[in-house]
Amino acid sequence: MTLLDVRDLVVRYGEAVAVDGVSLEVDERERVALIGPNGAGKSSVLNAACGVIRPASGRVRIEGHDVTGATPAAVVRRGVSQVPEGRHVFATLPVEANLLLGAYGRLFSLEVVSSTLTYLRSRTEVRQRLDRVYDLLPQLRELRARPAGRTSGGQQQMVAIGRALMAAPRLLAIDELSLGLAPLLVQQLAEFLVRLNEEEGVAILLVDQSASLAFSLCQRAYVLETGRVTLEGASRDIEGRTEVRSAYLGSDTGDQA
């Protein structure tokens, strides 16, 4: 069944058209990549899908429910969590508070009192999920008391992923996993995401500039260029097409310069 269904999406910033009729699907338990050069509109697609920006036209559905123009909170409650570009951890709060807020945020509504009570009532459940996240990312357990801003870039990426997982998402949308991280670290995170996908059944939508990472991590890929999908299909098919390497993705050495 289609988990995330983006149909004919158009995103405009004033006069500029950033996304020009993009359609994209992610099935349950699937790993899908959205790749393309800088400024192709990848993040705009993701942000429109996650309710951060309102599309000019087109539809976004999660499991058949229309969430076009909905708030990020509504999208999270439908089971799609985003790991933002540049990680954006809550720097002054301990790692554990960052994670717990991921669970709290999903329950948060305009009525703070009732959402807080709901959160406190589901404390055992939250605790179990926290333990699960710690099992998946053991480093975070060791860092739990440290302010998130005082951890390394890779650890912050783990915090951001862990925080998103605390909302128990069906789909994890990751914006620029590899940005600013050492290749070895990116490799470890990629392996973790595959395991997360296979063991926990969480679908992955990866938006990244690194084509090699996207192809090794994801079964399917969409190539985006100037706001349009120019290629889509199985990763290995797309990877084989030399024009992809040269035209859109540059020399594919996996570095991020």
């Binding site: 996650c50 951060v52 708030t71 990020p72 909170a73 999270v76 409650r77 969590s81 985003q82 933002p84 954006h88 951890v89 809550f90 720097a91 002054t92 709060l93 508070a97 960052n98 717990l100 807020l101 991921g102 709290y104 945020g105 999903r106 329950l107 948060f108 509504s109 305009l110 703070v112 807080t116 959160y119 406190l120 801003g149 951001a160 925080r163 998103a164 909302a167």
Partner: peptide
């Protein structure tokens, strides 16, 4: 407290706070 931490989170990284479901106006 989780509510207090939510306030700090909104100040630390407003975009991420919104992405996890916190309502900045609340």
């Amino acid at each position: 407290t989780i509510v207090g931490q939510a306030l700090v989170a909104a100040a630390d990284a407003p975009r991420a706070a919104e992405l996890i479901g916190l309502n900045l106006r609340s």
